[in-house]
Simulated scan of single mutants.
Amino acid sequence: MNHNVILTCAVTGAGDTTAKHPGVPVTPKQIAEACIEAAKAGASVAHIHVRDPETGGISHDLAHFREVMERVREADTDIVMNITAGGGGDWIPDANDPTRGGPGSDIQTPAERHAPVAELLPELCTLDCGSLNFGDMVYINPADWLREHARLVQAAGVKPELECFDLGHVWFARQLQEEGLIDGDPLYQLCLGIPWGAEADTETMTTMRNKLPVNANWAAFGIGRHQMPMVAQAMLLGGHARVGLEDNLYLDKGVLASNGQLVEKAASIINHLGGRVMTPAETRAHLKLRHPATGQTMEGDA
């Protein structure tokens, strides 16, 4: 069991959730405020996407990422920042010509995905480790794109969070490490419950965990009603955890949540199991992250 848990809050995501929950952050100001709310509730890390302020839909606008980062960094509440670099992979075949992307498709090159990370240098960024039937669309992430993207992240000196939505993604992430494209102890995020990837259950999480390198740090999350059970399960199996409105909109059945409430509920579970949530400073030291103010890599452990 892991007694010192890094708790990430994924505050907004890019999914079509704004129509279901009016409290999902949309503007850069709202997203930054959600990160600060999560920090005050006890989160170690804030994971961010940005959205089009007018429509609430997907955005990759560097200016939006910059505004979020600046607002959070200027606040008096510390939190480790994790920028998504996994956008721009959505493929929906056109109904009349399946060789072309139809409405809703959103494809970026590795360099385009990496641009906010290269410019803003967060402590962490995501690196999604494979393609997937993601609900009714296909998430496109060819192996050569991943290698190129891993090189860009490595050159920037940002630690990648290796997001694995299926067992083959863990395999490929290990391959990136073997090829020297991942520096230091790798950080994995096991993403569970997304149709049609890895299921959100104990057997699946255990199997994926057992395939990780011996020097890996890892976390896991489940979506929807699986969110809180997977917090407990990840901790019991030796990992870290993630919650937030990107993955789940509800505090209880029929009760819409805020990011802060989800963090508080997860922290309570961790505390009741005999653990504690690591501070942002402890998280930087544990993962050997580059400090945003000094640029120095933090050393030590919690």
Rank of each mutant, 00 (worst) to 15 (best):
N259P: 06
G101D: 04
R100Q: 15
G260S: 12
T18G: 03
I223P: 03
D52L: 05
Q189D: 09
V68P: 00
G193W: 00
I270Y: 03
R174Q: 15
M1T: 14
A267Y: 03
H64V: 04
S258F: 01
A302W: 12
G180T: 09
I48F: 02
V277F: 06
R284L: 06
E112R: 10
T202E: 15
S44A: 09
I269M: 11
L62C: 09
G224V: 04
D97I: 03
G15A: 08
H3T: 14
W91L: 08
D106I: 03
M205I: 14
V5Q: 02
G130E: 11
F165G: 03
L146Q: 14
P292L: 04
V231S: 10
D185F: 01
A267L: 07
G15T: 05
L62V: 14
G130Y: 08
I270P: 02
H114D: 06
A200T: 08
L249A: 04
E119M: 01
M205T: 10
S131Y: 08
P28T: 10
Q296F: 12
A302F: 15
S131D: 12
F165H: 09
A14N: 10
T8I: 06
D128Q: 08
P116N: 11
L187P: 07
D52F: 12
N259Y: 04
P195N: 12
A46V: 08
I58R: 15
A173N: 03
D247E: 04
Q30L: 03
M298F: 13
V231L: 13
I31R: 06
G57R: 11
A198L: 09
G254I: 05
V277C: 13
L162G: 07
N2R: 13
E178Q: 15
W171L: 14
L262I: 05
V5L: 03
P280F: 07
P122F: 05
A285S: 15
E161M: 04
E299S: 14
G260R: 09
M137W: 04
W171V: 11
E199K: 15
A111Q: 13
A118D: 07
I223G: 09
M81L: 15
N141S: 13
D97F: 11
T27H: 01
R100M: 14
P103T: 11
N217I: 07
V45R: 07
D144E: 15
G295V: 13
L120C: 05
E246N: 12
